[in-house]
Write a protein that binds this DNA or RNA. Sequence first.
DNA 1: TGAATTGATATTTTTATCGTATGGATCCGC
DNA 2: GCGGATCCATACGATAAAAATATCAATTCA
Lengths: 291, 291
Amino acid sequence: MELRHLRYFVAVARHLSFTAAAESLGVAQPPLSQQIRDLEAEIGTALFERTTRRVALTRAGIDFLAQALAILEKSGEAMARARAIGAGAAGIVNVGLTGSMLAGPLGRAIRDFAVAYPDVDLRIHEMSPDRQIAMLKAGQTDISFLRSPPPDADLVSVRAWRETVTLVLPKSHRLAPTAVIELADLSQERFVFLRLSDSLFAKHLWACCVEAGFVPDITHEVVEAASLTSLVAAGLGIAIIPEFVARLAHADVVYRPVAGKTISADVHALWVGERAGPLIGNFLALVRSEA
Amino acid sequence: MELRHLRYFVAVARHLSFTAAAESLGVAQPPLSQQIRDLEAEIGTALFERTTRRVALTRAGIDFLAQALAILEKSGEAMARARAIGAGAAGIVNVGLTGSMLAGPLGRAIRDFAVAYPDVDLRIHEMSPDRQIAMLKAGQTDISFLRSPPPDADLVSVRAWRETVTLVLPKSHRLAPTAVIELADLSQERFVFLRLSDSLFAKHLWACCVEAGFVPDITHEVVEAASLTSLVAAGLGIAIIPEFVARLAHADVVYRPVAGKTISADVHALWVGERAGPLIGNFLALVRSEA
DNA sequence: TGAATTGATATTTTTATCGTATGGATCCGC
DNA sequence: GCGGATCCATACGATAAAAATATCAATTCA
């Protein structure tokens, strides 16, 4: 049995006429009769009761009609779904990221993507950077967003958006009134950092401090980027955070740009080259257009 | 797209090898490649990622595999169902009858039929005789069982089983001790009858009485056959009932055969000739074999 | 009763599927 | 690193399946 048999059968069952059905199918009547005959022979029972003048469904035919319609509909859906997935308009995208990403273009991109591709299931997985890389390689996520990712032969990496950093000071800090602050001015400060063992971005900041001529005095290490601002507000030190995170303004702190050589907080997208479906490309393109 | 494409696709997806899949399908490898190629062209997206050395499903392919399996299974089921219905091993049978039938062979037949044909849905519709005939003609029931059915050009009728009648007397009745009772002996009795306007069988009994030389004195008319025995037990008259109904013995009455010319209570099966499916034949054959 | 309509049948034409032969690419063993 | 083996793709002739044309038989309706 082939789908053609079902298409022909449904046409005859709809019109209850071989002639009319053949016309609607765009074929001649004899091949239609022949195909129905073949179908009945394969099933082993008559689907139509035909006199030369009237065509009627048998009981078996009535049941088979319902099944045939369901099968044909399912076939069409299967093709449409595969086509949509292939075109990147349907499917699942698992996105790895750290919480501090969502304040920037990524947050907007996630929202807009859901609107643009309603048949795509976008799933967010908030994790530490090294776990993100492990999940990517294990195939459990499709794309990850990291600041300062390490080079890796298995992974493709492009910059998703440019971002710089912002200094966070307690309102009462001696430098709070100062407009222009350079990194070197902070050599005697006490710092609140993301945990160096977790955060690649924190290591990058540390390296920038060293390049500026001092080793930062890190008094507290936290995991969540949002915690940094709170600790600064509590007067436990100062912090350097990605500029978009500073948009979640806190009343008890002030934000100041870091003058001098720009400190990068750029975010890079990473994925496994071979498993890059069109969905990933579509999503990444949207993220970059938001920047 | 044809089911062949799905069969071929599933084979390749199962083996993840064109060569092995072709062998399992019993075709050569090139036509298999060709069909997969055609399928992918029609869908508009690749279902496999192939290097010359490795075959893997794409995301679209993974989704399509699940759909293809479901469609193929459904196709097989549809054929099997149609085959079963055509062979009279599946479907629905609507049976029209009056309650007094179920005490006889029909009750056993219904039970046994459900065992023999588990895929057949046998539905009982208890109705008055004229309503049964109307339902038959309207196509709402498939077969009916009636005593003394009227001849009808649209309906086919065969005797389903032979049955005679039993006289029902109150225990205290003057004839209760008598073993041999003829119909003519009852000319002075008061009778409980099924309603003459409803029951063809009651009309038949009335005619038998007239033939025996008297017009029965009908003091009560009821609809349910079971009510007859209760009324007799209450001393309101005597009754003549089909013999199988007498099997539901009542403590306050006695049952006596009617001697002389046999009074028929035969049950006939009726159906519409053109709409007689194999199921009806199978069911009727079982009923007759129970008799 | 005869014209018209409808489905079945016979035969030719066309299309599509299949099989064989072959080529290119990768992997594996030496 | 080289040669054989394996695997999928391509090309082409053979074959089978489907479609079209012509025609027939049966029924309906005028």
